[in-house]
Nucleic acid binder design. Structure first.
Lengths: 262, 262
DNA sequence: AACGCCGGTTTCGCCTTGCGGAATTCCGTT
DNA sequence: AACGGAATTCCGCAAGGCGAAACCGGCGTT
């Protein structure tokens, strides 16, 4: 009765637990231990353990009064985040290409990670001087324009939490003083865009703006990055204003009401 | 270095694999084996196995060209199904309560399972004669008005597949003849509602209508159930027409264009 | 062109720890 | 109060998960 001679690297407990998760999900609603056990032909004890584990991980939810399980918050959170990311990327891409042509510099899109920003898309200018990120890379919040744009628009509590984390020093110019950072963030909130000059990567600068979801929460950020020598302050300001325009458009499509730019 | 003295029933491999899944999800995008391994402090080999397993189960997707992993179809399918169910239930509930008051009988909402319908909500009439289902119960498609309503509006291929499964005989009146069932389903498609008289439960009857999603696919069904003695054919017809009205309203809110009722 | 580094894949044997039968407790019924 | 079904808990066995280390393949370097 060999089941899956396929991949020798599949870990059985994991696979079976995923089947349990899947069953609970497909069932549409609250389902009891015994039902899962019978359906999947997995002994009650084992099923019990999987349900417990999935629940502990937040993928399932255990209703103590009915003693039944259904989908948990973790799964929904993941799904929501994924959908949100896909949507942002989809909405942003055309605008990013347009921006790249306008400024002939690399345009980046990133989402908020945990204390970091994670690049989820980028459109590179075909200039010989290289870009600095790859999709999937994550950089600190406080040393990037992307991160600063997000931080500035975060609710106070959450921003404090982010800034309480140890701040890594990426270059000699990286901001590390709490006061200085907060001062800049207030300025960012006023102007609607953030800039970073050699604070994340020597010789490189970046101008970034936040993208807000339907709740007005900054879930992502858009930026233009360039070698410091190619982007003087005056041009950076112009880029910031243009980026802000584009980001507001994307935010609106995500369902965000105007809000921004106090 | 005891990690979680918490729940002794947590299965470690499962828990760790879920952490991997979560990390990949939170990361926002394609992530490589080594990165996951480092981030989670899980040895490369083990991480590799989890990634393989998650991929085999469809929860992750392995991009062979970049050798990186991201969220897979299974997770999205689950999330979508869940969202869809929540939405249907949410949209249907007020109308169900209204219907319950109009007819003073129990109103049921079910989604299509695999060869079955699964009750996801019901509003009971407070009459002493009992209802027959509980949320989470699943009944055969062919013996319930809910199932017949769904079957009638399924694409031909899928309907055939359903009817090829062995048909259980719930009562003496349960339809088992392929021809007879198909004749009824054609009738259901014409009238827009299905009826069932003691075919699922002795002495009980049910009138059901399909709810269509944005693709015109019958994802759920709405029904009124009652003791046979309280619901003569004339009243059943009236209920069917009313149900149809309500279901079309819900379907429309789900994004379905009129379509139905040929 | 050979080298070496950096991932990813495979092997292999130890021994953790997951497994499931059976006993137990907990409820909701009769 | 006793019954029946479901969820928990216990416990000993050995399945099978683990991870160090070896292997491989590709890419950038010398």
């Amino acid at each position: 009765m060999a089941k899956k001679p396929e991949n020798p690297y599949v870990v059985q407990p994991v696979m079976k637990a995923l089947k349990v998760l899947e069953l609970v999900a497909r069932h549409g609603h609250e389902i009891a231990l015994t039902a899962v056990s019978k359906e999947l032909r997995i002994p009650k004890t084992t099923t019990f353990r999987y349900l417990q584990t999935l629940t502990a991980a937040g993928f399932l939810d255990h209703n103590r009064t009915t003693d039944r399980y259904n989908l948990g918050p973790q799964l929904r959170a993941i799904a929501r985040a994924d959908a949100s990311v896909s949507k942002v990327r989809e909405l942003a891409r055309p605008a990013m290409i347009e921006l790249m042509h306008e400024f002939n510099e690399t345009v980046n899109l990133a989402v908020k990670g945990n204390g970091t920003v994670v690049y989820i898309d980028l459109v590179e200018a075909n200039r010989s001087l290289r870009m600095q990120a790859r999709i999937g890379d994550s950089h600190p919040m406080h040393s990037t324009a992307l991160g600063k744009a997000i931080l500035a628009f975060l609710p106070d509590a959450e921003r404090q939490r982010q800034l309480d984390l140890p701040l890594t020093e990426r270059t000699g110019r990286t901001l590390l003083e709490r006061e200085e950072i907060e001062r800049q963030l207030r300025q960012v909130k006023r102007s609607g865009y953030a800039t970073e000059m050699g604070e994340n990567e020597d010789g490189a600068m970046c101008v970034g703006v936040p993208i807000l979801d339907e709740d007005g929460h900054p879930v992502a950020a858009l930026s233009i990055s360039a070698p410091l020598m190619r982007m003087p302050h005056s041009l950076a300001a112009k880029a910031g204003i243009r980026l802000r325009e584009v980001a507001v458009g994307i935010s609106t499509q995500l369902g965000s009401r105007p809000a921004a730019t106090g």
